[in-house]
Write a protein that binds this DNA or RNA. Structure first.
Lengths: 219, 219
DNA sequence: TGTACATCAGTGAACGCGCGTTCACTGATGTAC
DNA sequence: TGTACATCAGTGAACGCGCGTTCACTGATGTAC
């Protein structure tokens, strides 16, 4: 294996390059910004070349979404396995992982969560998403067993948790917060911490406690 | 004012019709589905006619987003004013209003929260959004004063609340839940209720309480 | 109440380019023997 | 180690249409007097 000569006839990593540039494009212009012709120009290749790696445009979009879901899933699984015996801490770490993924890979995040004809119900997308969601469910269930999350069905709680981190990720990546008021970086971590604390029934009890004593101090 | 004759030379409500059809199109195909030529066909009008009502395609998209934000803001303000003296109930009602808007107007919801060059930082969008967010902030602040929400800064709490309802709305409107597992209609209301309860420090204390007594019963 | 005129909101033909996609081709690479 | 051959991954010219946009025009509507 020698150092790859430049300007070989065979590009060598065209598929990878196309996907990377696409993600970059999506970050700036959204998924509609993806353009096979422009892509061929940017990769220094003829217009037909990309078709040796992606059947058509929708196939590229699907491949990007799939890769995104797999990256996110891998990150969540890894976080999940790293932290043992402390479900609340694990929940907070999972939330941070999710947020960090969205913020540092907004292109992937955008292409993953768009309901178009292509992506809907494709097994290659649903599978990693289910695994990712399982991480949340498991962490919450552990937390419930330990008595640090509200009792009852796990599913609604997990969905609530997912909604929260997904919503924050969405508002961050679509610039809703930047546009309107918020110094993002500072707040994100504290919001996640707040969320975890609110989820934690024990901590919550103490919040109410603090609250009550404060009130009685006032009166 | 007589009944409007059909087939007048002047259409009479072309602008309204174009916007309605656009929203419909977005529901099914996303914002990229909007197409001036198709729109002129669907409204039974020549290709040039829409340009008397919208400067260009981006202007139409902006108008749709603006209308969406105004509708949402109006709904939130109305809900906010309807419920007095019960901040927790108001919070839950606001959440339901937000969710209901997203689910019953997915076209508006989609066009509102997309970060493209057009919509970014446009005053016509930021203004109603700020007012909407203020509804949340006020309700949470009231709740804090009453001692039914965690103390501390209001902003992070409000942002957390917004994230949650926005995340759930997003996951619902982009079919993430439908695709993967969830019977939406049943869960939505119960999740919102759960969220509100979790937010409510008093109710939370009782959750932890129930929890503790259950644990001691087990041991 | 009728007439003149400005303005509004259509028509429909035309322009033009962006962009996805195809195709016959050819140079590079890998593998069998 | 060299040769033959299959396969892979490029080239570059061409096709064609979808779609935004323009423009000179004209019919309808409203208002001043």
């Amino acid at each position: 294996m020698r150092i790859k000569k430049k300007l070989t006839y065979h590009h060598g990593h065209l598929r990878r390059l196309i996907m990377d540039i696409s993600i970059n494009t999506i970050e700036q212009q959204g998924v509609e910004g993806i353009n096979f012709r422009a892509l061929s120009v940017m990769t220094g290749v003829s217009p037909g070349a990309p078709y040796h790696h992606f059947e058509d445009r929708p196939a590229l979009v699907l491949a990007l979404a799939q890769e995104g879901f797999e990256l996110l899933e891998a990150a969540m699984v890894k976080t999940s396995q790293t932290i043992k015996n402390n479900p609340i801490e694990k929940l907070e770490a999972l939330a941070n992982t999710y947020l960090h993924f969205a913020v540092s890979h907004p292109g992937y995040f955008k292409v993953m969560f768009r309901a178009d004809a292509v992506s809907n119900a494709h097994e290659v997308l649903t599978h990693p998403t289910k695994l990712m969601f399982e991480c949340l469910c498991n962490a919450i269930e552990e937390s419930q067993k330990q008595g640090t999350a509200p009792q009852g069905e796990t599913l609604p709680l997990a969905l609530l948790f997912w909604s929260t981190i997904h919503g924050l990720a969405t508002l961050l990546t679509n610039d809703s917060l930047k546009k309107f008021f918020i110094p993002e970086d500072k707040l994100t971590a504290s919001i996640i911490h707040l969320m975890t604390k609110i989820f934690d029934t024990k901590a919550k009890a103490s919040l109410a406690q603090k609250n009550r004593s404060k009130k009685s101090a006032e009166s």
